[in-house]
Design a protein around this nucleic acid. Structure first.
Lengths: 185, 185
DNA sequence: TTGTAATTTTGATATACATCTAATTAGATG
DNA sequence: CATCTAATTAGATGTATATCAAAATTACAA
């Protein structure tokens, strides 16, 4: 489920993603104005302007005051500032996908390339290969030292080409090696 | 004709006014990602994601790097910041309507209520009445003093109810009065 | 060169929505 | 109360566009 933050920001962008509404905001920036006045300025019919103002009001960007039968709208700059500021921070942007399972991609790759414990094929693309390598390196303990034979044996349980995979693990810095001894850094 | 500033900002809002694109931006906020990866994360087909990325690239919010046949996209935060900052300043917001004749409204009111030099009727709504009064006060010179008779005579050339209009001019502070003498402040 | 995987382009479809006219509501005026 | 004006709501229509499947493209590998 999308966060309230997300829908608020999405609504904000939707509100300002229309030429007429953006012009209305521009017109209100210098002055409060009635519906009829805005309609004349933008060369639109009153119902159209009314419809746009309703959308802007929904997200809190404008407010209305009655004077007789005429409704006078004005911009709420504080809301404008509050919303744009939120978009500026990386932290809040990341929440845009918080309803998404963050490792869906990795799990899909593992599902595609493994048949149980057995690696069907070494992925050609770097990004996919890295996912497989990160899974492989989990078969090793952190505080233990391995001989080359041991490393090869562990890898061989998942794929016959242990030499290539061993090299790739080193290359990706997932395993470290010095004078024939391997460990997990 | 709309300013380049205006269309740039409109394009920016259009780019971010879609749920999927906003989520893409969110996903790219923490990491660069391939098309396939984004498609898995958002549960969309690759062509759809490709289409969205093209739109984001058009406004400079993302950039792309090739790695083999996979295209890896990343967010351009500087562009994000530059665009949101521009929206924050009142000055630039006002330019959203710079292609609009600023006094279109006033001219329409004057056209509606005047028959040549003759005021057909005194507008009931305050906003419209003020437009008419501002036109009327232009019939008076700045550095001259008028008797009440003179004021009434000038107004009467445009409308019979000079008393009401004279009072309204004072009330709107467009004319000043002291001990029977009138002038334009 | 032939094949394969990732992406993009094309074409089709369905939905969202901006705009208009006509009808309705709400205040103000005579 | 009847009327007028400004605004909103309802209903209709056309355009924009998000999405997908299928075809075309691109870059790499065998």
């Amino acid at each position: 489920m999308a966060s309230v933050e997300f829908s608020k920001i999405l609504a904000f962008f939707k509100a300002l993603s229309d030429e007429s509404r953006l012009k209305i905001v521009g017109a209100l920036a210098s002055n409060e104005r009635s519906v009829e006045e805005l309609a004349t300025l933008l060369e639109l019919r009153a119902p159209t302007v009314s419809h746009h103002l309703a959308k802007l009001k929904e997200v809190g960007l404008v407010e209305m005051r009655s004077e007789g039968t005429t409704h006078i709208y004005h911009l709420v700059m504080s809301e404008m500032r509050a919303l744009t500021k939120r978009v500026l921070t990386l932290d809040s942007i990341e929440t845009f996908t918080e309803d998404v399972v963050p490792d869906a991609w990795e799990r899909k790759i593992l599902g595609d390339f493994f048949e149980g414990q057995r690696l069907k094929e070494i992925p050609a693309s770097r990004k996919k290969r890295e996912v497989v390598l990160r899974w492989l390196v989990e078969r090793f303990q952190f505080d233990k030292r391995y001989t080359e034979k041991e490393v090869s044996a562990i890898i061989a349980k998942h794929h016959p080409d242990f030499a290539t995979l061993r090299r790739e693990l080193i290359c990706a810095k997932l395993l470290a090696r010095e004078s024939g001894v391997y460990w997990r850094p």
